[in-house]
Amino acid sequence: MSPETIIKPTNTETISSQRIVSISRERALHLLYQMIRIRRFEAKSAELYGAMKIRGFLHLYDGEEAVAVGVMEALRPEDAVVATYREHGHALARGIPASAIMAEMYGKQEGCSRGRGGSMHLFDAKTRFYGGNAIVGGGLPLAVGLALADKMQGKRRVTCCFFGDGAVAEGEFHESMNLAALWQLPVLFICENNLYAMGTALRLSQSVTDLAKKAAGYAVAAEAVDGMDVLAVEVAAKKAAEIVRAGEGPYFLECRTYRFRGHSAFDTELYRTKAEVEEWKERDPIKTFIEHLKNQGLVSEMDLNELERKVADEIKEAVDFAEAGTWEPVEDLTRFVYSEWRGV
């Protein structure tokens, strides 16, 4: 079975501000560094999956890096993040150490969820990272609740909720949009539209494929952005987060992106053509950003080599940390089913 048509990357009307945003060399290198470390981390994860060091499901983020990196620039330390099962990139960009993430995927107790969660359930209280949620759409109500708590406590914080285009078909998406708008809650909804719910194309699962319109139907401020363009995402996310933080209600940002690898390690990709993937790879967010920065004279080959070396060191350290990690004693199996403290 082959797909009827190639889904082209060019037929979208989105904000694309790469050419209009001026950026300092320092900022440019920072964004590039974040995207490259995600890309290399994922490559290492795939390799370690092949080596059977990492097991379970593994969903990689290649191609979508500009979304997590751009959006995180709009968040502050006190904000909260609710992510999906394809969340290594979000966790890294949010500031969870690569070592703690890698150790988690190894199932070691030094992992960010003590080896209880694995690749799909990265959690971190320090950065207010509330998962790693692997029921599609299930994270949206949590984000609504976190934002409700902030609003009721008078805290000016943003809850940023990532989900894919597949989640838009779930009832929880619609219930959450309505509730967030009805109660004017400070949620920044980030829809990572990579055009496929696992293997089902958006056009085969949605009667209306312009997803921002669905959010707008609930009176949620909504916009679409080129999710392959880190500067465009950053600009759009900052504007959205500002509105949310100001107490003007939720915001829905659709980031139009593409997943370069299969849905998970088990995906044989029967539902799309190689030509389609190649066409999207022309718009690789890292490649195009480097080209842009070189044209602007902001980065040199030497800078890139330096970045790559820094990233390679960080990933090597992460793997070493995971390898050296320890297994939680089996006697501790039933810990964390209930809290080990009582109180108010």
Binding site: P141, G145, D150, E172
Partner: peptide, 15 residues
């Protein structure tokens, strides 16, 4: 689903 989930989120958020 949304208001039970919101209860979970609000509980994690300090309520």
């Amino acid at each position: 689903s949304a208001f039970v989930g919101a209860g979970i989120g609000a509980a994690m958020g300090g309520m």
